[in-house]
Computed example of a mutant assay.
Amino acid sequence: MQSRTGLTVRTFAPAQTAGQPPVLLVHGFGSDGGRDWVDTGIARALTAAGRVVIAPDLRGHGDSPAPATVAEVAVPALVADLVTVVNEAGAEAFDVVGYSLGARLAWELPAAAPGRLGRAVLGGLSPVEPFAAVDVLALRRAVADGVEPADPFTAMIAGMVRAHGPRATGLARCVEGLRATPFAPRSWAGGTPPVFVAGADDVMTRGMEQVAQSVDGARWVSVPGDHQGALTGDAFRRTVLEVLAG
């Protein structure tokens, strides 16, 4: 389905609804709704539990359009896209599961959609902005002209972005937009405390447990795996189902 935002949105309906709000699934950077949620079996498990599932591809990702400007992929714009997708689904209330970048965006949803967000699972969330150290000019040159960045971290990000071929320019803009609106965890604005899930070997989430402890009523769940392995593992899927079942 194509949203008014231009985003591609996958919607899955159960054979018999459980009478609970739909679940918005928000994928990570460089991925898409199919890889993070369909291929892992999470979307199927949720529909089997009677939940409607909404899984958009973020702007610049998957089958959604590439951003024309950096402002289109700053955090406020990406979050506004998600609220529009939920509105178009006719959902007043909704739950959310976000992974990595998706969790970063989900953190903003209670403020962007006041009183509407129920349960939240925030997986693979970093306590700092991962792209803060990227040399933006070097990244642009790497994507446009193939000039290898001198900085190893920027070179690694450039390689990740260029692996997406024609989508590389849009993803590089996403890096710029996220870098311009870094994660600065404030108090959780939702009525229901979130559940944080992190892989036991995920270095990207180091320090996030302290942030979780600052949120009244929040839970911290450790599952096996590194950043990618945690998402694809059975323990993460079981945790999502348990949390959303309430």
Rank of each mutant, 00 (worst) to 15 (best):
M1K: 11
M1R: 12
M1Y: 11
S3M: 10
G6P: 04
G6K: 05
T8A: 15
V9E: 00
V9S: 00
P22L: 05
V23D: 05
L25W: 01
F29N: 01
F29E: 03
F29L: 03
R35I: 14
D36I: 07
D39M: 09
R44S: 15
A45W: 04
L46K: 06
T47Y: 04
R51Q: 08
I54E: 09
P56I: 07
D57F: 03
G60E: 02
P65H: 10
A68T: 12
V70R: 07
A71T: 11
V73L: 10
V79D: 07
D81G: 13
L82I: 02
V86A: 10
A91M: 12
R104H: 10
E108M: 12
R116P: 01
L125C: 04
F131I: 02
A133E: 15
V136Y: 02
L139S: 07
R141T: 15
G146V: 02
P152M: 11
P152G: 09
P152N: 10
A155T: 00
A155H: 02
M156N: 06
G159M: 05
A163C: 04
G165E: 13
R179M: 06
A184Y: 02
A184F: 02
P185N: 14
W188L: 04
G190C: 13
T192W: 12
P194W: 06
V195K: 08
M208C: 07
Q210F: 10
Q210E: 14
V211Q: 01
A212E: 15
R219G: 03
V223H: 09
P224Q: 09
D226I: 15
D226K: 14
V240A: 12
V240D: 05
L241D: 04
L241H: 02
